[in-house]
Nucleic acid binder design. Structure first.
Lengths: 341, 341
DNA sequence: CTGTTAGCGCATTCAA
DNA sequence: TTGAATGCGCTAACAG
């Protein structure tokens, strides 16, 4: 590997001059620049990024931490972040937290130990307190899908409560009155917000909350199946099920089908997230859109602005979910609606 | 940020000693080690990875290049690689090639400019020649899903031909004789191998290859739909469609359904890759398993062995696909089988 | 077992 | 506009 020293020798100039043409800093006579460029070409010179970073104290790397690496959300996020970063000549250093508090913390340590210029964090397990305490111990960082008091400007979040509201509201509108809900882990903010939205919609329609119809899940497919079965076993006149994410919805869908319930004519099903395959299902899943890609791009904007001083970039912190009406939800069965008159 | 120098001063030892306890290299008296550790703790010392890398000429980073960042394959790959690498204290530096020859090449340049100790490459667009020419210009690298003459030991590949064979064979076994095939881009090796397997199965069953039944696609959902429609429009007695990947299969499935064909009783459908959502479909998709996670782990083994000298790790180069029989394929319709007697 | 000394390859003053 | 000198923080001989 050629070094800057060899280039300078071949070009007959000093180290400093080579450095200048590399970084376009300072004035260099055109003829000199040309000589240097030629030498670089001849030697197939590649600057050593470590030496650069060590000397300049900046890495051009942005650390990205995702709570888990699989799942459709993750892929969309990374694609968006990577694309956007490249556009500004920065690079993504990616780490996975594997949905574990200790591992997430370790991944953060790793990213900061690699001297990232900034961090984009998508974490579930770490507490607000921990994150707040990291404010002055880490490079500038922004979070996706969290809303933390005291650092709202660093949070790119979805209005999960409103999404939960939309899902249930769309059902109420269509005459459903017995709506079961399969939630995510209630210790996670997004899960409890989604449930809160569900409750608000019910209240708004003058319905009592029926605690028997709310089940706490864990965002995983098999749990969706298990809890959907539990709901059916209740033998209550449930005509719709809202799931707090698409994963659990697909699990529920399978159970409904195997028990010979027709969706949506017997029972409606609504998911949340609008992951890619939700439209591949049969029936296509009605769900709430989670604009991951947009939010990811916004996180990059934040980083470009805060860590690299780029200007003119808009940063929006809260994104609005949107109901995606597809085939898995419809009007409540007529018999049921009659009974409610 | 505390430096090694401050630690050494606080601990009352030399730089070298601090370095030794950090890296567990050389002998250090227990009492000394303790002093150093205490000092590190007190100062919240974090080694500067650039300085380490610059001095030691190794980064503990493995570059991972994927042809595209979205899609289920990618997520599974990264999860497996990241997990496995962490286990050995190495880290993944990830870049996306975005399915473009120039971008893939640039991403490689980026990864090598970041002084990765090794590279794991999953590329589609780059030519064999190019890759061969990089052998001595890059850190040690291994490829996933390629099989290149002259560097077979660096290729972790799937026997795509055999997979194509399995898919079609399973249909022939069940009495199908008019099987349409929607392939991937024939300039990609995996796509042409899969098609070759299809052809071999047909030949083995003594059937003529009917060119009207082979369509070249691009691995994308809408194309699956378009070509499935084209197949139906042929008005030939097709009783089964094999798609070269699950994406196109789901596109095809939708068209079949919208045209009121029942799967599998009217027509069978087989995919390829066994992506996660293939089992979410209705009917569940029969497909060929592509063991991405296993292959990814194997790539990491290669890296650990070749770049870090770890021992005792097995490396297998060629993986076998496996037919996953689910609901979307079944016996040929009776009428059709009668006609063939 | 521990300390001294030289770089690793580059950016960045400060002079010229 | 260019060059010389210094140091970024750490590892790795080499001595002791």
């Amino acid at each position: 590997m050629a070094t800057i020293y060899e280039v300078s020798k071949l070009a007959g100039v000093s180290l400093a001059t080579v450095s200048r043409v590399m970084n376009n800093s300072g004035k260099v006579r055109d003829a000199t620049r040309r000589k240097v460029l030629d030498a670089m070409e001849q030697l197939d010179y590649q600057p050593n990024s470590f030496a650069q970073s060590l000397a300049s104290n900046r890495s051009n790397c942005v650390g990205v931490l995702v709570s888990e690496m699989h799942g459709p959300i993750f892929g969309e996020m990374l694609t968006a972040i990577d694309t956007e970063l490249h556009r500004s000549g920065k690079f993504a250093l990616i780490a996975g937290g594997h949905n574990d508090e200790e591992k997430e913390a370790e991944a953060i340590r790793f990213l900061s130990s690699r001297n990232c210029d900034a961090l984009i964090l998508h974490v579930e397990a770490l507490s607000n307190e921990f994150l707040l305490s990291m404010l002055d111990r880490l490079p500038p960082f922004v979070m996706i899908n969290r809303e933390i008091e005291g650092m709202a400007d660093r949070c790119i979040s979805l209005d999960n409560e409103h999404g939960g509201y939309l899902a249930t509201h769309s059902l109420l509108e269509q005459g459903h009155t017995h709506i079961a809900y399969i939630s995510g882990p209630q210790e996670w903010a997004d899960a409890s917000a989604r449930l809160a939205g569900h409750n608000r919609a019910l209240t708004e329609f003058g319905l009592e909350l029926d605690e028997r119809l709310v089940f706490e899940g864990d965002y995983l497919v098999p749990t969706g199946s298990r809890l959907a079965a539990a709901i059916l076993d209740l033998e209550l006149p449930v005509t719709a099920i809202v799931c707090a994410n698409d994963e659990m919805a697909v699990g529920a869908m399978e159970v409904l089908r195997s028990r010979k319930h027709v969706i949506p004519s017997d029972i409606s099903l609504v998911g949340y997230d609008n992951v890619r395959w939700s439209s591949f299902l049969n029936p296509k899943l009605t769900t709430v859109n989670y604009p991951v890609a947009d939010m990811s791009r916004m996180a990059v904007n934040w980083v470009l602005k805060q860590a690299y001083g780029e200007e003119g970039l808009p940063v929006r912190n809260v994104f609005e979910p949107e109901l995606i009406r597809r085939e898995s939800s419809g009007p409540a069965p007529v018999a049921d609606r009659m009974a409610n008159l």
